[in-house]
Amino acid sequence: MEYQPLLNVLVLLALGVLLDPVASIMWPVPYKRFQSRPKADPYCKALYPFCPTGNPEGGMPKMQSDDVIEVFAMKAPVWEFKFGNLLAKFDIIHDAIGFRNNRTGQNYTMEWYELFQLGNSTFPHITSETPTPVWCNQGAACIYDTIDDQHWAANGTLVKVAEMTGDQFNKFGVWAKGDNDTGIYYETWTVEDSPGGKMWFDSYDCASFVVRAFNVMGLMGAKFNQSVHLNYTRIHLYCDEPQYLGNASTIFGPISVNNSLATDIRAFYSNFQPHQPIVSAIQSVIQALETVFSENKFYFFYNYEYWFLPMKAPHIKLTYTEAKLPGPK
């Protein structure tokens, strides 16, 4: 048998995959991990300080190996401090984890959230100083003493879901610190082909952190109460297969070969700028919705790279669905 023609075809296919980054895409695209957390762009300023009373690097307290640690799922409406229970009516919920050491009686709250608030984590700033959009989308874990029962229980949820030993908690703490150091940016959107269909990109937010943390605790031997049912908020974008565009250097830098693409991306994001007067903000939102729903397009930033989403109905949807607690091994 003559193998050379077959070999030639295989070589061409391999070269095609190497030269075409889209040809080898894995769906959903894996969330990029980093060796360590870089310093945020000096341009980024938080309206409210991140983790003001806790450990901003996610370091965990140490327990005695035979301690009994109760684990709580905690939920409250997003921006409850400003709008009360309003956003709970739309199932826009923030998630956190509570811990109680039965020996000491000490309580702890653990949250994963944005360093520079939700708007900055979802859209960039368009400035005249640089052609490149400025992203302030870092997220991190914060753990601090006490559980504010009124905050979590009055308008949300505070329910015991599991027990673990002090030794298991300490091992979870090692995982949490590593996760916090390597998973540095916040991602608001879940991008899919259709409701319940193929996923292109997964979200990385407070809810996904809690689900991920509970699963790790389960693997470490924590005993979960299977009778508890918990729902989590997701904000979805729906589109046909995303098209890879490039990173900031290839689109906005000196080696850019498509100035019209850079201009179009800046124009798209300019409709989502924060800190606008109310009239301008309303006009921007209307223009943004027209772009998404009428023109069926969305520029998406993931793993510090840009993608074009060919949007389709229903375009955008918010869901509040259950993620099951870990079961027995």
Rank of each mutant, 00 (worst) to 15 (best):
V292W: 08
I143G: 08
I126G: 03
W175R: 00
P5G: 11
R37H: 10
N303Q: 04
G218S: 09
Y244K: 04
T132A: 11
Q273H: 03
T233V: 08
Y244E: 09
W189D: 01
N271K: 04
S121P: 02
V78G: 04
E57A: 13
K75H: 14
P314L: 01
W135L: 00
K297T: 14
A262H: 11
K89H: 12
W175A: 03
P277Y: 09
Q64P: 01
A96H: 01
Q4H: 13
N180Y: 06
F224T: 07
W189A: 01
L230Q: 06
T146F: 13
S65V: 15
V9Y: 15
N85D: 13
A88G: 14
V228H: 00
E2Q: 02
C206P: 01
F99P: 07
E2D: 13
F272K: 05
N258P: 09
E192K: 08
K62H: 09
G327F: 07
K89D: 13
F268R: 05
H229V: 15
A23I: 06
M217G: 08
M60G: 07
Y244V: 05
T165S: 06
G98V: 03
S24Q: 02
H315L: 07
G54Y: 01
L289P: 02
P21I: 03
S36N: 11
Q243E: 14
Q226I: 11
F308K: 10
F81R: 06
P314A: 04
L325F: 12
V71E: 03
K317P: 00
Q117P: 00
K329S: 14
L6F: 15
L47V: 14
F268H: 15
K171N: 08
P30H: 06
D202Y: 12
L309G: 13
W200Q: 00
I126A: 00
Q287E: 15
L318K: 03
P314S: 04
A162S: 04
L261S: 09
K177G: 08
V159G: 01
W175V: 02
Q276N: 04
P254N: 07
S65W: 12
I184H: 09
P195V: 03
T250G: 12
Y269E: 07
S203C: 06
S194M: 08
T130F: 06
S128K: 15
E111T: 14
G98A: 05
S260D: 14
R37S: 09
V191F: 05
N271W: 06
S36H: 13
N102G: 00
I25P: 06
S280D: 09
D148M: 01
L309T: 12
P61I: 02
E2C: 08
A141Q: 13
G54A: 01
K324G: 09
M74Q: 03
Y302F: 13
N8V: 15
H125T: 14
I93Q: 03
L261R: 04
G156P: 05
H275T: 13
F252D: 12
V216L: 05
A40I: 10
